[in-house]
């Protein structure tokens, strides 16, 4: 369960998050949608304790991320890039991440196999393609077999088979009872994957609800998204 409650944050002179509130529930895939620069990544960074909000709270299973003991066993996060130092091999990266949370080192090889990187496990992360970096990032998110997954633009950089794999991975994760929150600006790719939708634009939540509720009166999720963000004056 993820609970975002009245988050606000100002950077320089611009208000990048303005009273943002929503929930992501267990057993469901929640799509956090909005144009580039709308505040999706900023919200996720606050949720993961990377950035401080000016006001409001972001909780994972009722606890602030910073207060979670061994957080990777509760929540796995995929941000842009792999997070691995480019001089380090994928396996070396995953092994220190595992050690930091008391996760057995053998999990590194298991998650590398899950994301299809076993053959490249000894390659330096700096030599990975964009798609491979995303897979390595996902491998790190899965290390602790967490009950919550937070994925920022998870299909960016993936080829068609990778996108297909990611979709079924997300659906399977929710079917196993996990809370899945993913951000994206690609509506068409997500319509078949999400159960709930939260739309953000210019730092404010425009709408939230089940996929059926949000698309009600619109032909597709994409149409609904453009109609909702056009009302708030988004430009492309």
């Amino acid at each position: 369960m993820i609970t975002i409650d009245r988050l606000s944050k100002t950077k320089g002179k611009s208000r990048i998050l303005d009273d943002v509130s929503f929930e992501a529930r267990p057993g469901r895939v929640t799509g956090f949608l909005g144009p580039n620069g709308a505040g999706k990544t900023s919200t996720l960074r606050v949720l993961l304790g990377l950035d401080r909000p000016d006001a409001g709270t972001a909780l994972v299973c009722g606890t602030r991320y910073r207060d979670l003991p061994r957080p990777l066993t509760r929540i796995g996060a995929l941000l842009d890039g792999s997070g691995a130092h480019r001089a380090r091999s994928a396996r070396a990266h995953l092994r220190w991440v595992a050690a930091s949370n008391g996760i057995p080192a053998t999990r590194a090889d298991e998650v590398l196999e899950t994301v299809g990187l076993t053959a490249d496990a000894r390659k330096r992360a700096g030599r990975y393609s964009l798609g491979m970096s995303r897979r390595l990032g996902l491998a790190a998110a899965l290390l602790g077999n967490p009950e919550v997954l937070v994925l920022d633009e998870p299909i960016n950089g993936l080829d068609p088979s990778g996108i297909r794999w990611m979709r079924s991975f997300l659906r399977d994760s929710a079917a196993e009872g996990r809370t899945v929150l993913l951000s994206s600006h690609l509506m068409g790719e997500l319509a078949e994957t999400v159960d709930d939708v939260v739309v953000i634009d210019k730092g404010r939540i425009v709408t939230s609800g089940s996929l059926a509720e949000v698309t009600d009166g619109h032909r597709t999720l994409e149409d609904a998204f453009f109609a909702l963000t056009a009302e708030s004056g988004a430009s492309w």
Partner: peptide
């Protein structure tokens, strides 16, 4: 591919 991302993100989430 991701110039703004550093190992610190992985470190602080762990």
């Amino acid at each position: 591919h991701s110039p703004g991302i550093t190992q610190l993100h992985a470190t602080l989430t762990a």
